[in-house]
């Protein structure tokens, strides 16, 4: 039943590829759950400080770049869509399309990082640095300082995940190109895609909290 290609990908402790893939996806969901807890601790901290400094948080959120933040949201949502499409194409044996979609998703991820860097540079010019280095004369006060320290911690941690994701997508594109991922076996693409979608979900929450709720 299983082709020679499939057989080499099946580990000896699994009965068949379907069970192995299910176990792999379960493992990925558990990993994503632990990542979600890491980010949730920071979201809880944000909630606590927003209750403590409601006015300062609204003023500070009004100081982030709404246009850039919105473009970054569209970029990441579209990038996620391209990764989903690459899986759709590989299942239809259209490996060349899958490589193009993955490359496009990686380019959008890199675009996100460039935009994020531009925004950080903009903040640095205004004296908005994290923690004890904060010296923004336009937004004095502890509340604004805490807002931007959380902003750097949360968007910075997220940006590191995006960086990892871009490298992962590039690697997946290379694997598809080399024929190591195909319609019969695409678990790495599925799991890598799940990671990228999770990074997208985190931004879906960062965007309103740091840009929209002004």
């Amino acid at each position: 039943m299983a082709s020679a290609g499939q057989a080499t990908r099946l580990e000896p402790h699994f009965q068949d590829l379907a069970k192995q893939t299910h176990a792999a996806r379960l493992g990925m969901w558990v990993f994503i759950g632990s990542e979600a807890l890491l980010f949730s601790a920071l979201f809880a901290l944000y909630a606590a400080y927003r209750v403590a400094y409601p006015g300062a948080f609204e003023d500070a959120a009004g100081h982030t770049n709404l246009a850039l933040g919105t473009i970054m949201t569209a970029v990441l949502l579209t990038s996620s869509f391209l990764v989903a499409m690459s899986l759709g194409r590989i299942r239809r044996r259209l490996a060349r399309d899958a490589v193009l979609f993955l490359a496009g998703a990686a380019v959008l991820g890199a675009t996100f990082l460039v935009l994020k860097g531009m925004e950080y540079a903009e903040h640095f010019r205004d004296g908005i640095y994290p923690g004890v280095w904060y010296r923004a004369s336009a937004l004095p006060g502890q509340g604004a300082n805490i807002f931007f320290t959380l902003y750097y911690a949360m968007t910075g941690l997220h940006a590191l995940h995006v960086l990892g994701g871009v490298l992962l997508l590039a690697w997946l594109a290379w694997l598809v190109r080399r024929g190591r991922i195909d319609d019969a076996y695409h678990t790495p693409l599925e799991l890598g895609g799940m990671y990228w979608h999770f990074v997208d979900v985190v931004w879906v929450f960062l965007w309103p909290l740091f840009y929209l709720l002004r």
Partner: peptide, 18 residues
């Protein structure tokens, strides 16, 4: 804002993440 973000996260988890 959080409700809409939650709806987006749900869509991504259900369909993009299968």
């Amino acid at each position: 804002a959080l409700l809409i973000a939650g709806a987006k996260a749900t869509l991504i988890a259900l369909f993009f993440m299968h």
